[in-house]
Computed example of a mutant assay.
Amino acid sequence: MKNNQPKSNKGLIAVMVLIIVVILILSGVVGYMLFGEQLGLTKLFSHETTAPATEEITTAAVTTAEPTTAEPTWEVPDIVGMKANDAYTALNHAGTRFEIKREYSEDVDAEHVISQSPDAGTVIKDSEKVLVIISKGVDQPNTTPPATQPSTGATSPTKKHSSGSSGDYILDGSDKRYVSFNEVTPLSEWEMTIALNEIYARRGRKFSTPPLQEYFSSKSWYKGTISPSDFNEGSLNQYEAANVQTILAVMSERGYR
């Protein structure tokens, strides 16, 4: 019996050690489960499978831009083949600016539109113009064109003019209606100049040209308060803006501008 006692003690010690090891392991597992995340032990025993969330920075990407006023645009009407006067009216109603050129044509009757640029349906900016080519009819080289009457307006600012029911405007009511091409063409250069500028004079624009300022200052309806540099073209209504274009087109055609 004395020989077997040491073996029994060793066996008992081994069992106790095993029990202690198991208890320690269990304690570690329980401790890890309860406190491992708080103590930062998760990173030691686990692998991150989810990438860290990236915070979206929206305030840096979104910028508050200054409001911009887009330039108005207009769709060009189809005027090819129209009579000149009808074409001008169509362009005015569409809101497009235009300039006129004339060419001889054997295929298109006189005073009809040969072509236009840009084409119908094109959207153009308010500052752009439509080029309108008007037929002068068949070229007759042996026919002497009528002489252009010299302008006397620049030296005759006090010349009397009467037109319309009021007798005080070259083109009466040009702020309330569309002026036709036929109303403008019979006018002299000086009368066209007055007709053009009385549209602005109604809006209180002053004039840097002495003859014009003198002319409008003599009118009872004229109240010039806005200097030329401060005048805003946007103050013109749709009729006035269209009529300005009509008068300018005729003046350009006649070589007055």
Rank of each mutant, 00 (worst) to 15 (best):
S166G: 06
D139C: 03
P146R: 12
T152S: 03
P141H: 01
A147Y: 02
S117W: 13
P145G: 05
P141S: 06
P141I: 09
I124L: 10
P157C: 02
E128Y: 09
H112G: 04
D109W: 07
S162P: 04
T158K: 14
G121F: 12
P146A: 15
D107P: 01
I100A: 05
P145A: 15
A120R: 12
S105Y: 04
Q116Y: 00
I134C: 02
E103G: 08
T143E: 14
V113I: 15
P145V: 03
D139G: 04
P150M: 03
Y104W: 14
G164M: 05
G167P: 01
V108M: 00
L131T: 15
I114P: 07
G164Y: 09
K125T: 13
T143H: 13
S166D: 09
T148K: 14
E103M: 10
Q149K: 15
N142R: 08
G121K: 08
E111M: 09
K160I: 13
R102I: 05
V132S: 05
G121T: 09
P118V: 00
Y104M: 04
Q149G: 01
S151F: 11
S115P: 10
S156K: 14
R102G: 03
S162M: 07
S163A: 14
S165W: 07
S162N: 10
Q140A: 12
A154S: 13
Y169A: 01
Y104T: 05
K159W: 11
S127N: 13
K160W: 10
R102D: 00
V138Y: 05
D126M: 12
D107F: 07
N142C: 03
V123T: 13
H112T: 13
K125Q: 15
I134Q: 03
G121I: 12
K159M: 11
K136W: 04
E106C: 02
G153N: 01
T148F: 07
D109M: 10
Y104N: 06
P146C: 08
S165T: 12
A110G: 07
G153Y: 00
T143W: 08
V138G: 02
S162R: 09
D119G: 15
Q116N: 02
A154V: 12
A147M: 01
S156H: 14
I124E: 06
E106Q: 10
I170W: 00
S162I: 02
H161G: 06
R102N: 09
Y104K: 01
Y104C: 01
G164L: 02
H112P: 07
